[in-house]
Simulated scan of single mutants.
Amino acid sequence: MLGTLWTDFITGFQFFTRIPVVSQTEWSLESFGRSVKMLPFIGAIIGLLLGGGAYLLQHYAGAPAHVLAVTLIVAEIIITGGLHCDGFMDTADGIFSGRPKERMLEIMKDSRVGAFGAMAFALLILTKYSFYLDIDPALLPFACFAMAIGGKMGLVVAVTSFPYARPEGLGKMFFQHHDRHALLIAAVLAALLLAPFGVRALGGGAAACIAAVIVGRYVNARLDGLTGDVYGAVNEVAQLAVLLVFCVK
C-alpha cells in the first residue's frame, strides 16, 4: 500500500515538476491516474519552495516588492517547466478562435503559439504580478503555499468532474485511470494542508475549486469535454483565484 502511494506520488511529482527525485525508468498509465489524488501534496511542496523563497528574500535579502514578484513568477515557471502555462496558451488559442469544436482541438494541439495565446499569457503574468504586489507582505509566503495547493486542487476538480474531449492524449491517462474517490481524498488532503494557515487559506482553496468548475463548464460547453491543455489552464486560473482571496483586505 505505502509502496504504491510512494510510486504514485513520485510519478505525479516528476510529471508536474522539473525537480529530479529518483531515477524512474518505468511508468504506468495507472500510476499517472492514481497520482491525481496526490496533487494537493505535490502542490504543497511547490508552495513550500515558493513561500520559503519569498520569506528568505523578504527577511534576509531585503528584496523590493517588484523584484520579489518577478522572482516568484520566474521560479514557479522553472520549478514546473512552464507546463501549465503552455496549456493555458494552447487553450486560449483554441477556445477563443471562434472555430468549430474539431478545429479548436486542432489549434490546441498545434505547438505554435497564436495571438490569443500570447495575449492571454501576457495578461496572466501581469495579473499574477499585480496580485503579488497587492498582497500584504506578511501574508505573501502563505499565499504562495495556498496558491500552489489551490492550483492542483483545481486540476483535480477538472480531471474528476468533466469528460475528456479527445479519444487519446497525454491528459487522458489522468482522466481514465484516476481513483474513484480521488476528488474526496484530494479535498480532504488539501483541507488538512491549508487549515493550519487559517480561514483565508481555506477560502482560497474553495475559490480555486469554484474557478475550476467555472472554467471547466465554459470549456466543456464548447468542446464536449476537457483536454490536458485545459487542465493546465484550470491550474493557472485556480491559482489566480487563491491570490485574489489573499488580496482582499
Rank of each mutant, 00 (worst) to 15 (best):
P141C: 05
L170C: 00
K172P: 01
T160P: 03
G169E: 05
P141A: 04
K152W: 00
Y164P: 04
F142R: 04
G171A: 09
P163M: 08
A158H: 11
D136A: 11
P137Q: 08
S161I: 00
H181I: 10
L155N: 04
G169K: 03
L183H: 13
R166I: 09
M173C: 10
A148I: 11
D136S: 12
A182M: 07
M173Q: 12
D179C: 07
P141H: 01
H181S: 11
F145P: 05
Q176R: 15
C144I: 01
G171H: 11
T160D: 03
G169Q: 02
D179A: 15
A148R: 12
K172N: 10
G169A: 03
Q176Y: 13
A148Q: 14
M173D: 00
Q176P: 01
A182W: 05
A138F: 03
V157S: 00
V157L: 00
G150C: 04
A182H: 09
M147T: 12
L140D: 14
H177P: 03
E168S: 15
F145M: 03
F174G: 01
F142Y: 14
P137N: 02
A143G: 07
E168D: 15
F175H: 15
A165K: 06
V156N: 06
A182C: 06
G150N: 05
R180Q: 14
A143S: 14
T160S: 14
G169C: 02
G154D: 06
F145H: 04
C144Y: 03
L155S: 07
E168G: 06
F142D: 08
M147A: 14
H181G: 00
L170R: 02
P167C: 10
F145N: 07
G150E: 06
L139S: 10
L140I: 08
L183D: 04
R166P: 02
P167W: 06
K152A: 01
A158S: 15
A138V: 13
A165R: 07
V157D: 00
P167V: 13
S161A: 13
L140C: 13
G154Q: 03
A146Q: 08
L140F: 10
M147R: 08
M173R: 14
P167I: 13
A146L: 05
L140Q: 12
L170Q: 02
R180V: 15
H181Q: 13
L155Y: 02
M173T: 15
A158Q: 11
V156K: 09
G150D: 08
G154P: 08
D136L: 06
A146S: 15
F174E: 09
Y164A: 10
A182N: 08
A143P: 10
L140A: 08
V156M: 08
P163L: 12
C144R: 09
A148D: 14
G150P: 11
A138I: 08
D136E: 12
E168I: 08
H178E: 00
I149C: 10
P141W: 02
Q176F: 14
E168V: 13
A143E: 08
P163F: 10
F142Q: 12
L155A: 05
L139G: 00
P137F: 01
P141L: 01
D179V: 01
V156L: 10
S161L: 01
G171T: 12
Q176E: 15
S161E: 13
P163R: 03
P167T: 14
F142C: 04
R180M: 13
A148P: 09
G169D: 06
G171S: 11
L139H: 00
L170M: 12
A146Y: 07
I149Q: 07
R180N: 12
M153G: 02
P141G: 02
R166V: 09
F175I: 02
